[in-house]
Design a protein around this nucleic acid. Structure first.
Lengths: 255, 255
DNA sequence: CTTGACCTTGACGCAGCGTCAACCCCGACA
DNA sequence: TGTCGGGGTTGACGCTGCGTCAAGGTCAAG
């Protein structure tokens, strides 16, 4: 005869768990002794061990119930399903581990390796850290939007950085965070941007059907603009010259 | 400007989850429009994606809070810990998969491969299926008790089966389930058992310090005895000859 | 002006137990 | 024989991370 705590110990579970299994009918209530104590036999140990084996594998207790009370064929099918579930779960965790791996390197979360590498290159150019952080946040959102295409997009951004004109642009943007609203140097930024936008447009690199909806693009532009006082002035200049957009380039009018 | 459902969609979570994060202070409550609607900006999307990245990795929300609001060093340490946790979880699931693998082969749950193989051999000898199930249940309990040593124990049981005397014993035990209480053939079983017990004792195979407590051994014996009417008679005969025990052999008196 | 799709707060529900609380019981020791 | 420590009993609330009504107010389109 076993008391509840000895039963639990033999099966490697807690007393509370055993009582819970009684409550939900997973383990039948045993006879009681004259004192009201539950009195178990060896069969209860066996059943309890089976329950734990399935439960440890992540099977919900309700399903455990079904499986243990089912015939051998239904049971076999259930076990196969459990194994599929385990495999899927393992894959999910491994995927998460890969994603987590990038941030241990220092970048602040939720970015694929490729983007982290790109940001590091930008930082190495001497671009202001605050600007790098702005870019980073935009990339976090974009990476969530296009989990597939992000590596390709980043590869293209990398190639853009081979152009010294683009490097100069980044450096200027970094400095521009501290400029006054009417700093005249904003014109140089506008010049470079116009060159680059024109080049991109001619190279057919501008893709209007990028999976982003317009209001969302506006929101990203707006967020970027909030960071620097001169942004509004830059927008005006570019608009006068027939350009619109930041996150996504758009040609709105011929000059 | 984003409404809650568009925010949720951009980050790949449910509206309910976003509200939950507000409730627990994980995501700050944004401004409200004149209608009382929440109005989000791009920063909220970024924060929300970060939250999900950590939460998907199994980090409890309270810990997510701490990590996101911590400095980069504390953050790095936290991420490393998360990775350790992920690795441990993956190992646990893989271990469960191995355990589950055995039962897919048909045996009814909670047994290591070695035991499944042993039971199959016994079954192949033509031993009654009901008796095999009795053995199986005992092994489930024993395997839970000695997860390490079980393979060794089973290897020894395998070698015992090389003895035709032992094979005969198993077959008789299978048949004996249907015998009457006073069937005279029980004597043959007792004879074989005595021979085997004596042999085991002389070979030094009997280990009193096996990690099982006495009441538990008695319980297992009792459970086995309940299955067949002749069991009690068998016990008496063996006791007269100075033997005790079934699950564990004990010499109680010289003849 | 009506739809139908959104938004709001508030509340209860779920698994799988952990953790009191308040009480009873059993065996050992003085 | 009392008592003491370590069992047992039921009952109830707590925890995480939301899902899911309910009972309304709002927004944009037709």
């Amino acid at each position: 005869m076993l008391t509840i705590s000895r039963l639990a110990a033999h099966a490697g579970v807690t007393v509370r768990a055993v009582r819970h299994y009684h409550q939900i009918g997973l383990l039948p209530e045993p006879e009681r002794g004259p004192s009201g104590y539950r009195i178990y036999d060896a069969a209860a140990v066996v059943r309890l061990i089976r329950i734990r084996t399935l439960a440890d594998a992540g099977v919900p207790l309700a399903r455990v119930q079904e499986l243990l009370d089912a015939g051998p064929d239904e049971f076999a099918r259930g076990v196969e399903e459990v194994d599929r579930h385990l495999r899927a779960e393992i894959r999910r965790l491994q995927e998460n581990r890969r994603r987590i791996a990038g941030l241990a390197a220092g970048e602040h979360l939720a970015l694929p390796q490729s983007v982290v590498g790109y940001l590091e290159r930008v930082r190495a150019l001497g671009v202001d850290e605050r600007y790098v952080e702005l870019e980073r946040d935009t990339w976090i959102v974009l990476a969530a939007q296009w989990p597939q295409q992000i590596d390709e997009v980043i590869a293209h951004k990398h190639s853009e950085l081979d152009d010294p004109d683009m490097v100069r642009l980044y450096r200027l943007l970094g400095q521009a965070l501290d400029w006054d609203v009417d700093d005249p140097r904003v014109v140089e930024i506008a010049d470079i941007m116009e060159r680059q936008m024109r080049r991109a447009l001619e190279a057919g690199e501008v893709d209007a059907d990028d999976g982003l909806d317009d209001p969302f693009v506006d929101l990203l532009d707006e967020a970027a603009a909030e960071a620097a006082p001169m942004a509004e002035r830059l927008r005006e200049i570019l608009q006068e010259r027939g350009w619109k957009g930041w996150t996504r380039i758009e040609r709105v009018a011929e000059p």
